[in-house]
């Protein structure tokens, strides 16, 4: 996980990134999250970035210090947000508190595009995926930007990493 600040852009490459998964089950959109992570990895340009899934226990969801160490959050709508079972997530996802350059993708398995728009209106700056393809597309765009293969991507990774260090007191 996050262990040190990056002083130089060159420190950012290669970069290993975790894909946070907040879900009660191991599957979404008919695929295992592990397979979804592999598909996302396959579509990333360059070889400076590797990603790996990380399943965080929902009973420890208030542990924001642990959650923020992942630049992409996949959150299952029905299991985590729909019934407000974990009210802290609402505040974590507020864009003014969510780390810069990180990405949260809420996954909904019913309701389609219209439901996705409805949820997006509630959470500013959050993506909502209603199918495997929409999920992978959102992740692909994110990792086009957040990718130390490119100079602008290095700057994003460095900025994100150091913001998290600041919040963790590193």
């Amino acid at each position: 996980m996050i262990e040190e600040r990056y002083d130089n852009l060159s420190d950012t490459s290669p970069h290993e990134q975790y894909l946070l998964i907040l879900s009660e089950s191991e599957t979404c959109f008919g695929s295992e999250y592990t397979d979804l992570a592999s598909e996302i990895q396959d579509r990333i340009n360059g070889d400076a970035l590797t990603i790996q899934e990380y399943f965080h226990p929902l009973e420890d969801v208030t542990n924001s210090s642990r959650l923020i160490q992942n630049s992409v959050w996949l959150i299952h709508w029905d299991e985590c947000l729909k019934n407000q079972d974990y009210p802290c997530l609402d505040s974590f996802l507020d864009q003014s508190m969510f780390p810069n350059y990180a990405e949260a993708i809420i996954c909904i398995e019913s309701g389609g595009y219209q439901k996705a728009k409805e949820i997006e209106r509630k959470y500013r700056g959050i993506s909502v995926a209603y199918s495997k393809d929409t999920l992978i597309s959102c992740a692909k765009i994110h990792f086009s930007d957040f990718n130390p293969t490119y100079t602008s991507g290095k700057e994003r990774v460095k900025s994100w990493n150091n913001e998290i260090c600041e919040r963790l007191g590193i």
Binding site: C138, D145, Y150
Partner: peptide, 17 residues
């Protein structure tokens, strides 16, 4: 969004970010 993601990734690659 699939087409956008492909175009975005390719454009990023062309322009080095």
């Amino acid at each position: 969004i699939t087409a956008v993601s492909e175009a975005y990734a390719d454009a990023t690659s062309r322009h080095e970010g």
